[in-house]
Computed example of a mutant assay.
Amino acid sequence: MYFITAGTAVYRIRGEKAENIELAIAYFTAALTVYTRDAFPQNWAMTQNNLGVAYSDRIRGDKAENIELAIAYFTAALTVYTRDAFPEYWAMTQNNLATAYSDRIRGEKAENIELAIAYFTAALTVRTRDAFPEKWASTQNNLGVAYSGRIRGDKAENIELAIASYTAALTVYTRDAFPQDWASTQNNLGEAYRKRIRGDKAENIELAIASYTAALTAYTRDAFPEKWAQTQNNLATAYSDRIRA
């Protein structure tokens, strides 16, 4: 299993998460009764983006429909957030739209992944390592996940592209600075090495084991029980496939 690193989210910790998201949706929708595209285009676009994030995270309602609504809101935001006028916000929304397409249930899966790759790649034209290192790393990791799940193209090459993206992300996602994101990317890199076609199979499995083991230094049972369990499962699979003694 691969892990997507988080972008913008609905942040409230107290209260029931599902109810908090419903309240966020209600308040963003209310804001749009004043923030019209004609009168307040920038505020309208930001609220459209925020609604997209809320629907992406929504727990209630039909999941497939929620993702469609998220895509619609992000797409609307991009009618104002152009690359020339608002490059940072454009890149943020491109990244959010890519994540929504990665999660999309409706439509053809192969095409959804291609769209996700295109939007992540577009975001990286603004989210450079020098200008926005943390956001660049997040988008690199998410691009790696998209390449790992890619249906079109050469499978071996897609895995190589995924490995390159994860490795790039880890130049910013260090264990000290971003332990959770570092662990997520280490797990993803382990998955890519375990499934790698090119290179020496035995060596690839050793690299996968090393990446999973590294991830577990941050993904502890107490702090991240679900991710700890998933990474333990991935590590067990790698040991099952191991060639070296």
Rank of each mutant, 00 (worst) to 15 (best):
Arg150Phe: 08
Ile163Arg: 05
Gly107Tyr: 01
Thr174Glu: 14
Thr82Tyr: 04
Ala118Tyr: 10
Phe120Ile: 00
Ala146Ile: 10
Asn112Met: 09
Asn95Gly: 11
Asp84Tyr: 04
Glu88Lys: 15
Val145Glu: 07
Tyr166Thr: 02
Pro87Glu: 00
Ile163Trp: 01
Leu170Lys: 11
Tyr89Lys: 14
Ile113Leu: 00
Thr171Ala: 03
Arg106Ile: 04
Arg106Asn: 14
Val145Asp: 06
Lys135Ser: 13
Ala85Phe: 07
Ile117Glu: 05
Ile159Arg: 02
Thr125Gly: 03
Glu88Ala: 15
Tyr147Gln: 13
Val126Gln: 01
Leu170Ala: 10
Glu88Ile: 14
Val172His: 07
Asn96Gln: 07
Arg129Asn: 11
Asn112Cys: 03
Ser102Asn: 10
Gly144Ala: 11
Ala131Glu: 13
Phe132Thr: 04
Leu161Phe: 08
Ile151Val: 14
Glu157Gln: 15
Ala164Val: 09
Ala98Pro: 05
Val145Gln: 01
Asp84Arg: 03
Gly149Tyr: 14
Met92Cys: 02
Tyr101Leu: 04
Ala169Lys: 01
Leu115Tyr: 13
Asn142Ile: 05
Ile113Ala: 00
Glu111Ala: 15
Ile117Arg: 04
Phe86Asn: 01
Thr82Leu: 03
Asp154Gly: 12
Ile117Asp: 05
Leu143Asn: 06
Gly107Ser: 11
Leu115Thr: 12
Glu114Val: 09
Tyr101Val: 01
Thr128His: 05
Thr121Glu: 05
Ser102Gln: 11
Ala123Thr: 08
Ala164Trp: 00
Asn158Leu: 08
Thr99Ala: 15
Tyr81Glu: 03
Ala122Gln: 00
Glu108Phe: 05
Gly144Asn: 11
Ala110Ile: 14
Glu111Leu: 08
